[in-house]
Design a protein around this nucleic acid. Sequence first.
DNA 1: CATGCATCCCGTAGCCACTACGGGATCAAG
DNA 2: CTTGATCCCGTAGTGGCTACGGGATGCATG
Lengths: 137, 137
Amino acid sequence: MVTGPRGLSIGRIAAAAGVNLETVRYYERIGLMPPPDRTEGGHRAYDAAHVRRLAFIRHARALGFGIEDIRTLLALAAPGHRSCRDVRDIASAHLAEVRTKLAQLARLERILGDTVDRCSGAATPACPVLDMLDAPM
Amino acid sequence: MVTGPRGLSIGRIAAAAGVNLETVRYYERIGLMPPPDRTEGGHRAYDAAHVRRLAFIRHARALGFGIEDIRTLLALAAPGHRSCRDVRDIASAHLAEVRTKLAQLARLERILGDTVDRCSGAATPACPVLDMLDAPM
DNA sequence: CATGCATCCCGTAGCCACTACGGGATCAAG
DNA sequence: CTTGATCCCGTAGTGGCTACGGGATGCATG
């Protein structure tokens, strides 16, 4: 099994995963990405496993999982440790948080939307938005 | 017009507005709250205007406005400068952001909810959540 | 008046997940 | 061999607070 070319640069895997180059370095610093090999000159040289791991992280972040959750998910995703039950526990806890935020944001949108609708847009002092901010809620 | 008692302590106005004491100090540090009078011993002594201003800020934060927006809103709420048009511009810009976040969060909830539903909860290696995180999205 | 305890003082550092900066080294193409 | 893109590293900044700690004050008792 030949490894092929010497490995991908940090810029390449960052672009491949759709994340910032500095984010990859950050993930390495916090131990989320394992340190890759280096070229003679000290540049990082990644392999396919790194690319997969970074994609996993990126997907999990896109779903709103926090770094610590992702750390756990990565451990649970390792061969031999896969347990759907544990994964589901993390995912449903996160889902519950998402639903809470969603409800809060929807409430906020409703109040804000209603108030802005009542705004005349005139250059007058009277303003429903300011009235609401002044009044107790 | 007598000012009455010497003024409220930071702890009292914080409790009155439902914010942390340290948050009030923070607002003063960043220039959102004006520095109040002090007692001989150096403790802050607030008046009714401070209380109203803090309540305004608290309401605006509850609606998700950022600090800089609130700074502007406070200026626009000052007597003589009240302009419903300017206020509405800020509020509707914020509303647009809220709606964007709401849509993103709703999408996230849908994907996450669907995937978790397909989870058996069994102690098996096969897991829809991990499958999704591994696969390109 | 003394005591004790709650409250407040201030500066600093930490939280999350990045992002930005800057001066120098390295890489790869021509 | 030159050039221009990329990468190196450490550090600091973002938003909006929150926490900490050691000392000073305020106020209500005894």
